[in-house]
């Protein structure tokens, strides 16, 4: 089975110059945890997830403390989000991301998802444009068939 046979054929993505606020709204409205980031010709240039934004608004030392209970004031987080909400999403995306091709096998997609722990992987067509996404659920469903 190839990626094209089970991927979600949805090219919903966020443009590189869209803002953090627009990304958050898009995720909430579509129940998504992240999205591919594309340029004006639908070439994938990155991926952005909720985690990227959470990491951006929570003080960096929190990673060492392992608990948000140590945050002195939640208003700090709110204030930080307020500061970055109008920034372009490109400031927070992961660049040089792994992508799958529509012709890749289910096995290679599964390997990538397991190895890297991705919730979703952008899928590109033969001209390298965004063609959809392969999610963990779509992979599992394909394995059930």
């Amino acid at each position: 089975m190839r990626v094209i046979d089970f991927m979600e054929k949805d090219v919903t993505a966020i443009f590189i110059d869209e803002t953090v606020e627009e990304f958050i709204h898009a995720c909430v409205r579509q129940s998504r945890s992240g999205m591919p980031v594309v340029d004006s010709e639908m070439y994938v240039i990155g991926v952005v997830t909720e985690s990227d934004i959470i990491h951006a608004v929570i003080p960096s030392y929190m990673e060492m403390l392992h608990s948000t209970a140590f945050i002195p004031d939640t208003n700090l987080v709110k204030k930080r989000l307020e500061e970055i909400k109008n920034e372009p999403i490109s400031n927070y995306m992961t660049k040089k991301v792994d992508v799958l091709k529509t012709t890749d096998t289910l096995l290679s997609a599964a390997t990538l998802v397991i190895k890297r722990g991705y919730r979703f992987v952008p899928v590109i067509d033969e001209e390298d444009h965004l063609a959809g996404i392969a999610t963990r659920a779509s992979l599992l469903e394909a394995l059930l068939r």
């Binding site: 054929k9 949805d10 090219v11 919903t12 709204h25 409205r29 579509q30």
Partner: peptide, 10 residues
Amino acid sequence: DGITTSFLYV
């Protein structure tokens, strides 16, 4: 399956 979607959510 033959339809790829691209929707803007409002």
